[in-house]
């Protein structure tokens, strides 16, 4: 596969490491009320769509950027590639 890195252009997927569902960005607050349940859901209850999937990839053999790749799991078509840091900030994550 080819991942179109937002800063470096098309790169072979061999340079990347796959992690999984981009929903991992939404890490719960460990000190909040009900954290145990929140973490259980966060870590173990994932969608496994046959179709479009937002997932985290790491450019380990490149610039070490974590990316959010929107990929169709049936066709491998990649719709968008974003820097995970930008996506996380948009989702309200900060410090």
């Amino acid at each position: 596969m080819i991942i179109n890195h937002p800063l470096l252009g098309p790169r072979d997927a061999q340079e990347f490491v796959y992690l999984g569902d981009a929903n991992l960005i939404n890490r719960p607050d460990g000190l909040a009320e009900g954290a145990a349940d929140a973490f259980y859901e966060y870590l173990y209850l994932r969608d496994n769509p046959a179709g479009e999937h937002r997932e985290l990839w790491y450019h380990e053999q490149g610039d070490r950027s974590w990316l959010v790749v929107t990929r169709n799991t049936l066709t491998h078509d990649i719709k968008s590639v974003e820097l995970a840091r930008d996506v996380a900030r948009k989702m309200g994550r900060s410090k």
Binding site: L7, G9, D63, R64, S65, R85
Partner: peptide
């Protein structure tokens, strides 16, 4: 991103953001 530059004594290349 993706570049190198030489300028006198120093030169540098981009590692990541």
């Amino acid at each position: 991103a993706g570049h190198f530059e030489q300028a006198g004594v120093f030169s540098s290349f981009w590692l990541g953001p």
